[in-house]
Design a protein around this nucleic acid. Sequence first.
DNA 1: GCTAGCACTTAATCTAGATTAAGAAAAATA
DNA 2: TATTTTTCTTAATCTAGATTAAGTGCTAGC
Lengths: 191, 191
Amino acid sequence: MSLILQNIAKHITLTPEEELFFISKTEAHHFKAKCILLNSGQICTHSYFVNSGTLRSFNINDNIVEHVLNFACEGYWIGDMYSLISQKPGNLFIEVLEDAEVVLLSKENQELLYIEIPKLERFFRILTENSLVANQERLMDNLSLSAEERFEKFCKKYPTLIQKVSQKQIASYIGVTPEFFSKMKSRLLKR
Amino acid sequence: MSLILQNIAKHITLTPEEELFFISKTEAHHFKAKCILLNSGQICTHSYFVNSGTLRSFNINDNIVEHVLNFACEGYWIGDMYSLISQKPGNLFIEVLEDAEVVLLSKENQELLYIEIPKLERFFRILTENSLVANQERLMDNLSLSAEERFEKFCKKYPTLIQKVSQKQIASYIGVTPEFFSKMKSRLLKR
DNA sequence: GCTAGCACTTAATCTAGATTAAGAAAAATA
DNA sequence: TATTTTTCTTAATCTAGATTAAGTGCTAGC
């Protein structure tokens, strides 16, 4: 059974026909590392579900500094929610960090699926609720914890990502410069 | 027509009977300023919709410092999403800042409404999507903008709140101390 | 109408993390 | 294999914003 159907089955129950219909509205693709799936300034037309590999979403501010919004590895969804729902140009990039197999679900097909299989409203509602909770926690952590504490939380929450993703990317997610991250890491190792 | 039904009508269309049924599952209450609707450590049992007045959600970290997660004035929803969906004790407080009329929707009634009026899945999905987008933007702003820039964005985004809410609360939302906020404000006025 | 307790201001001092710079190690590419 | 590019490290210096402290002005409760 495909990973994406397992993901759905965690929250709602589809009949075999519904499952087939869902899959028929998606398309799987392979992408090489460094491939950019979405550019800043573009309108986001798809949600991406990761079967294997690793992606990230990030923006670039005036000073040419990148900030990672999200990582997505096996079993995670990623996209530019702002652009996807408003259908306006967004300011996020989505990039492949490790060769990936990705399932694409277009905005049109997603809307169509809501009509054909209303249960999917529930599924995506729950998915969005969970993202919101995770985001709120990260926001509060950024307001109240030190860089060291944020890093510790990151390690506990995403132990597998630490192997897969460069230090620079983690620093950007945590919200510190690579130089400070390196210093902090060696300080932590000395304990 | 009540504010909450207007709010719903922005995204989905209910029949008059459905509207009545929805309202029958909610209860309106008046609360005085300083009233705590939810305490840290409690399980959040309701979503709150603000008819009038102002509320905030915040947490308190080890150092006894408060951090505002959200403000809610007329026409906004507020709650502890983590605790509400997990039904575990949360770490948010919800407090009334200005005397308020609030519509309460219990978790049970919300689940019941999803079953009786499946369209509401869509409504709350859209609501959650919008919160997520706002939260992601705020997170990125906290990572990439200076306190001054964050304050400017806040003023543009929530012009009415600046009148209603104390400087201390805004400082906490922006992510700076009241002292620094005061200094920054007088610096801005000198231009 | 007083007084205690907040909210706000100002200023001196401190610090977590940024910036700049330069070299070492690793990895991509030829 | 050699070479180019990128990541990581270390260290000196700098700064946005925190902390501490003291004073002013409101306003809510008695």
